[in-house]
Amino acid sequence: MNVSVADMQKLIAGELSLRSRVAYTALLLVALGVAVVVGSLLLTEPSLPQRTEVAFAVIIAIALSWVAYASWVLTRRQVLFAGHRIVAGRMAVAFSALFVAGCLAVRMMAAAGLGALMLAIAIGILITARQRFRALMERRRALEAM
């Protein structure tokens, strides 16, 4: 039994889908947003019925499970390459900025604060991704010029 080059190229091509990476990044961001909003409600609303508190805790647990799953997929299975990291970073910045604006509009200040933290982290991720991409491109050009 032998495994051909074409077999392996087909296998790897199926693993390189940008669409699924974008989908998992979106899942991660939305789940994180849900966890932050519901978590801030749970922490800041003073007189929630006990059943509502339990329901919120369950929602947070589910959202954090999705965050963990999407993070695992993006770091172990559908890994992000340098170009994908820029796309993911931009998505994170856009989502976090929208999130902060939405929280401010409805005066959810605790959630807005956490959103601002998410935005700062997203900007950091985007800057790191751009630096890495630029460094790889510079090395690529140098090698191509040899």
């Binding site: 392996m8 190229q9 091509a13 390459f81 340098a82 170009g83 991409f133 790889l136 690529r140 090698l143």
Partner: peptide
């Protein structure tokens, strides 16, 4: 090889075809 690895790290699909063509055997 280094150039090939960098193209893969950038996420260029054709680079993976080249990598496999070069190193599979």
């Amino acid at each position: 090889d280094e150039l090939l690895a960098i193209r893969c790290q950038l996420g260029e699909p054709a680079a993976f075809d080249d990598l496999i063509a070069r190193w599979h055997e």
